[in-house]
């Protein structure tokens, strides 16, 4: 089967191992992902902070391109892009008067009928039903599933999982052979939007997250968002400074864990690209 793919900017740059693992896992499960042609950046936090119209027009262009290219359902692995696209689709549906100015700005038709899946929804819908007998290398470790903000909020619009104590990633980890732990920071904010401009805040926010996970015995943190990953992995220096100790617990994408469990080799899944070495 085939599905559309909106990778987004991080997955083409600093988080390419996320793309690698998404592609490896879908390929192993017989799903072909077709990248939306000529996609643009969704505008992320910057656009909606500074300019509302832009924050809707940029994601709308992406959805219009998908429509034009005959993609009826797309998967958006980046939680931030997933949020922006879903919120835009919702806003335009709720306020039809926006459609005209947005289609004019973009010069493209917009119907609003493309299905948008985040990575966990895609796996739940198309991969887990056929997983039986395929987990050949169970990931036998205690893991803390970290959902962050944008995968589950705002719940009224996304309608995905629960906004407090979500479970979907924990269930996926169970199926991959891991033992998800109960912990308190599943949906706390890592400080993504301030990563560069206020690194000290990130050290504190991400530090508290790491601390709780480690105190409760997690051997790895599992994420489904490139922003969460870079804050917990690349910014580990700021976290260690904040906590006053060295923490070497690695941060893996859910797709990397699933890939390992499916028997895909570490390099194909991009594990060597992490800052904090994956020694488990």
């Amino acid at each position: 089967m085939t599905l559309g793919l909106y990778p987004g900017c991080s997955l083409k740059g600093s988080s390419r191992e996320y793309t690698e693992s998404v592609l490896a896992v879908t390929k192993a499960c017989g799903i072909e992902l077709i990248e939306i042609e000529d996609w643009n950046c969704c505008g992320a936090t910057a656009a909606h902070n500074l300019n509302k119209e832009l924050s809707l027009a940029l994601p709308a262009r992406i959805l219009s391109l998908a429509e034009e290219q005959g993609l009826t359902e797309i998967v958006v692995p980046c939680a931030a892009c997933y949020g922006r696209l879903t919120v835009t689709k919702h806003e335009i549906a709720e306020h039809p008067e926006l459609k005209e100015s947005i289609t004019k700005a973009n010069g493209l038709k917009y119907e609003g009928n493309v299905g948008i899946l985040n990575i966990i929804q895609m796996i739940d819908k198309y991969i887990t039903p056929n997983l039986e007998g395929r987990i050949i290398k169970p990931f036998e470790h205690k893991v803390a599933c970290y959902y962050g903000c944008l995968l589950v909020r705002p719940h009224g619009i996304l309608q995905f999982d629960r906004e407090e104590d979500p479970q979907s990633m924990d269930e996926l980890m169970l199926k991959s052979g891991a033992t998800p732990i109960d912990w308190a920071f599943k949906t706390e904010c890592c400080g993504a939007g301030l990563s560069v401009s206020r690194t000290s805040s990130v050290g504190r926010l991400s530090g508290e997250i790491m601390k709780d996970a480690v105190d409760r015995g997690a051997e790895a943190i599992i994420v489904a968002c490139p922003m969460c990953h870079s804050n917990l992995d690349m910014r580990r220096g700021a976290i260690n400074d904040y906590l006053g100790k060295e923490i070497d617990v690695p941060v893996l994408y859910a797709t990397q864990v699933l890939g390992l469990a499916l028997g895909i080799d570490r390099k194909t899944l991009g594990l060597q690209r992490h800052f904090v070495a994956v020694n488990i």
Binding site: R153, P154, H155, E163, E188, G191, A192, G193, L194
Partner: peptide, 11 residues
């Protein structure tokens, strides 16, 4: 400006 739009308050 320091608000990160993390949506915790709203939820």
């Amino acid at each position: 400006w320091v608000c990160l739009t993390c949506e915790m308050c709203y939820s």
